[in-house]
């Protein structure tokens, strides 16, 4: 396969960026999308140019590091797939593919396709945890967890924190990410004591980071590589709203 890629090139956060076209030849359909970029980078290095910087690490769809908007869609055209698990067999010979970084005012571009997603860490810092100091835990079997709740918690807990939801949201909202954590911890018995405080603190941090609000469009869940359901946002909304009117405790 021979393809053309148009890639966002930007030297650093302060620099201006632009789309640059490259031809990449001899691509095998069994290559992953990132291996195609590896080939391009070999070409660029051989020519003495700076290779394209992009984030990637595990290349098996779990670490959440890879983060490319491909033809306008976060993680590309395949549903339930991270960029690193996207294979070139889903493209055609002669295609032109546009590749851009996640775009959100809260994700400054560091170089080319790499953005700074530390805002998401700060949302977790604000309350995305259960306070369980090491050594304080009762026996694991002491509290039964209905399978339904354990499964529901798991479905929300598989969020890989890649930020595709934010990159895809027309409002630049991070509510799917935030809701997933609130939902994961909020349906488990261990997460009940801090449940409402957690929801409030995370939503406040979400807003303070400059993410937009959720208008329930559902674009986030459509691009989510692990299929976090949209209802986690409603779960978070309900927790926040029921926590608002309480008296100061």
């Amino acid at each position: 396969m021979n393809i053309t890629v148009r890639i966002w090139r930007q030297h650093d956060q302060a620099a201006a960026g632009r789309m640059v076209s490259y031809k990449v030849d001899g691509i095998s359909p069994d290559m992953s999308f990132l291996e195609m970029l590896d080939v391009l980078n070999d070409q660029l290095t051989a020519a003495g140019d700076d290779p394209v910087a992009f984030d990637h690490d595990c290349r098996e769809g779990i670490c959440g590091m890879c983060s490319l908007v491909i033809n306008g869609i976060a993680h590309g055209p395949e549903a339930l797939t991270t960029t690193c698990q996207l294979y070139m067999r889903h493209f055609d010979d002669g295609d032109t593919i546009d590749i851009e970084p996640w775009r959100s005012e809260s994700f400054p571009i560091l170089r080319d396709l790499i953005v700074d997603r530390s805002a998401m860490d700060r949302i977790i810092q604000a309350g995305g945890y259960i306070s369980a100091p090491t050594g304080s835990a009762p026996d694991a079997a002491a509290t039964l967890v209905p399978k339904k709740n354990a499964d529901r918690a798991f479905d929300a807990a598989v969020c890989i924190g890649c930020g595709a939801c934010i990159a895809a949201c027309p409002n630049g909202s991070g509510m799917l990410f935030t809701g997933a954590k609130a939902n994961h911890l909020g349906v488990l018995p261990q997460g009940q004591p801090e449940r409402h405080e957690r929801a409030l603190a995370m939503v406040n941090q979400h807003d303070a980071e400059g993410f937009g609000g959720c208008t329930q469009i559902g674009e986030c869940t459509a691009v989510c590589p692990v299929g976090i359901p949209l209802d986690v946002i409603s779960f978070l909304n309900a927790d926040v709203l029921s926590a608002l009117p309480r008296k100061t405790d």
Partner: peptide, 9 residues
């Protein structure tokens, strides 16, 4: 025990 207390599902 520790992981269950932290909410590991």
């Amino acid at each position: 025990d520790q992981c269950v207390a932290q909410g590991v599902p």
